[in-house]
């Protein structure tokens, strides 16, 4: 019995406390509130020190950013996320946006890391300027997809693709990473769309929300893309029938 109690005391003594109320909610250390009085209820947090989190070996790493750098990017992020209504955000389970820089997952650079269970989206504010705004919506889609897995059936999605086309096994185990729009789309808006089904869906969603004009142009000569956009639109409208894709 003494040995048992001693073991418990030792275990308690060697585990360090991460005593703060933000960690208590989203299990990410070293954060502070950046802005929480937003019209759609999103709470923006910023890293004050680097942090490491993740289900496997703390594989998500991000660094704190200079406050001036955050101020510069915040307007862009807020403008893009403000298109989502409070009810929609509640349904998809997104509440906290963590702003940091040089985000990586298992040492591979990432624009964002969604975690719908924690209602959190981590955004790298230093991500490529050219695609930054659109990618915010891309990452939001991953939250949507995780919250409504049944709606976004990958088997059905894959059935729209050209015959013999195969996605890669995962989004990080392929060199199809270019985010520029492909001239002759043939069902895929970007090279990154060809990585996995969920990335493909996220790309279509992000264009529909951020640059619908471009999608509409491509649809004229692309039946596959037409099916894919209909699929995304219909399922998003199932979640919220007043969701607006037009900018």
């Amino acid at each position: 019995m003494r040995l048992f109690i001693s073991t418990i005391i030792i275990l308690i003594s060697i585990s360090s406390t991460k005593a703060d109320t933000i960690y208590n909610i989203i299990k990410i250390p070293n954060l502070e509130i950046y802005k929480i009085d937003n019209s759609n209820g999103l709470k923006y947090l910023r890293a004050t020190k680097p942090f490491q989190v993740g289900i496997r070996n703390d594989n998500v790493t991000c660094f704190n950013s200079d406050i001036k750098n955050i101020e510069k990017k915040f307007q862009l992020i807020q403008k893009n996320l403000n298109i989502y209504q409070p009810n929609f955000l509640k349904k998809i389970n997104l509440k906290y946006i963590v702003l940091c820089e040089n985000l990586s997952v298992s040492e591979i650079d990432a624009a964002g890391v969604p975690n719908f269970k924690m209602k959190t989206l981590i955004i790298d504010i230093n991500f490529n300027k050219k695609y930054f705004e659109r990618i915010v919506h891309h990452e939001v889609f991953h939250i949507i997809n995780d919250s409504f897995k049944d709606y976004f059936n990958e088997k059905e999605w894959k059935s729209y693709n050209p015959k013999n086309f195969e996605y890669a096994e995962c989004s990080t185990c392929t060199d199809r990473i270019n985010l520029s729009t492909i001239k002759k789309t043939n069902g895929f808006l970007t090279e990154y769309s060809m990585s996995t089904a969920s990335e493909d869906m996220a790309e279509v969603f992000s264009f529909l929300v951020y640059d619908k004009k471009k999608v509409d142009e491509k649809l004229i000569n692309d039946a596959i893309l037409k099916n894919k956009t209909s699929f995304i639109k219909n399922n998003i409208l199932k979640i919220s029938n007043n969701f607006s894709f037009s900018k």
């Binding site: 109320t21 933000i22 909610i25 509130i33 929480i36 209820g41 709470k43 509440k95 906290y96």
Partner: peptide, 12 residues
């Protein structure tokens, strides 16, 4: 019982 303000607890 909170000993400091915790605005993020609203809705949680």
């Amino acid at each position: 019982i909170l000993l400091k303000d915790a605005p993020l607890f609203e809705g949680e």
